[in-house]
Nucleic acid binder design. Structure first.
Lengths: 242, 242
DNA sequence: GTCTATAAGATGATAGAC
DNA sequence: GTCTATCATCTTATAGAC
């Protein structure tokens, strides 16, 4: 349930003169298998995130992982399935954490559920991960890109994240029982856009603000995003909404 | 200043048995030149938007435009310059419209500038274009994707759109003179995310809301986005902000 | 499990005829 | 201005040796 530490490249260059020093015969190198598989996932995650799915070749991933492209197909069959594995790996972790966070918030707040509280419980796990490892930062930037791709933005995102979003909205609904569904969904849409642009870490805001804001400054972002979105939810879902 | 109507493909298939029927000799076909150039831009816009820059080949663009890939390089030298031309074409139009809209709002509101008014003046031209032609929808979805690409999200977006954004913030500042710059920039960052996700039109919100919201329903989006963002700006820039 | 070799085709870009 | 032909390289994926 905790993050997998990004393993450093180990057998970067094993091509030499002598016949390659493989695992000792007599015992299937079970550990190494998982090692390479994970290393491929790590490298693919980084490259897909940095350059986009289509700009990355299986060869490039293989090379950076210290293997050949044949190994990519051995473990993942196709490039697309490699992507799916990359995407699902941390999505599963994130979904568990978000669900747990929302559950915990609902339990401890009892009847005093607030919009701020719900949104904070939803955002905190994700933004915390963003502050953790390079791997998570790559992954979350990849989510931001996928979320804006015409086909994938609908399908992949829906498949991966819908249950938690419905859960979030159900908690917010407890804080605003009078809110109409349409308004709740549009409000989430705006919040989602704000979150995804944050995960993208494009440094746009750094330039725009002339260095006064920094894309990766989670401590500055989280409280502001919570307040911004909560006020937004209230203004379009509240009693005064048209 | 109005939108260029998307021209239908005209000379789709001129490859046949006879030597290709080119323009009549004696007069350089000036009109046709611009025709093809624009058609290439239209087609590239559509394909870059639908599949992403890296997934589209110059051959594919050429074919859809009823020409050969050599013509792409004749008019634009490189694939990247083709992209830049696609991106700049409507960015220029949009920038003029947004500036004019902000100017007009500031003029007619005098001293009574409101956050809602400024945001509405900023958003309205863009969302109106989204409701106009396929070409504009493709373009705006492309902007959303570019805005989340690691390199381009910073550089291309900054180069193309920063002046209008600074203008928007300067108008909002008149409505909230006490607001700190950092807060204004972060608030814009959230608004920008909400806008870009809207421009992407991924149908995610349609699925999530089980059809209650439609990605292209500008009449539903604009007023909600204005209220949502205005409330957000006030909540993190207002006197009560920490 | 890991490699080399290769199939089968696509890619960005250019040269040169017309 | 538009084309065909081509270069040199890269692409995903597979076959088969070890």
């Amino acid at each position: 349930m905790s993050a997998a530490p990004a393993p450093a490249l180990k057998n970067v260059k094993k091509k030499a003169t002598a016949p390659s020093p493989r695992a000792k015969p007599g015992r299937p190198p079970r550990a190494l298998d998982q090692d390479l598989r994970e290393r491929i996932l790590d490298v693919a995650e980084e490259q897909f995130s940095k350059h986009g799915y289509d700009a990355v070749s299986t060869r490039a991933v293989a090379k950076a992982a210290g293997a050949t492209s044949a190994m990519i197909h051995y473990y993942f069959s196709t490039k697309r399935e490699l992507f799916d594995a990359v995407f699902a790996r941390r999505a599963d972790i994130l979904n568990v954490e978000r669900m747990a966070s929302l559950d915990a918030y609902e339990k401890r707040s009892g009847k005093d559920v607030s919009v701020e509280g719900a949104i904070e419980a939803f955002l905190a796990p994700t933004l915390a991960r963003m502050d953790e490892t390079e791997g998570w930062r790559y992954y979350l930037a990849l989510v931001a890109q996928v979320g804006h791709k015409p086909q994938w933005g609908g399908e992949v995102m829906t498949r991966s994240f819908d249950p938690v979003i419905q859960r979030l909205i159900s908690v917010i609904r407890k804080a605003m029982p009078e809110a109409a569904d349409v308004n709740l969904y549009w409000a989430y849409h705006f919040l989602s856009g704000a979150l995804l642009l944050t995960l993208a870490e494009t440094d746009r805001i750094d330039r725009l603000s002339n260095g006064q804001c920094r894309s990766a400054d989670i401590d500055a972002i989280l409280p502001r995003m919570v307040r911004f979105a909560a006020a937004g939810f209230r203004s379009i879902c509240g009693a005064a909404a048209k």
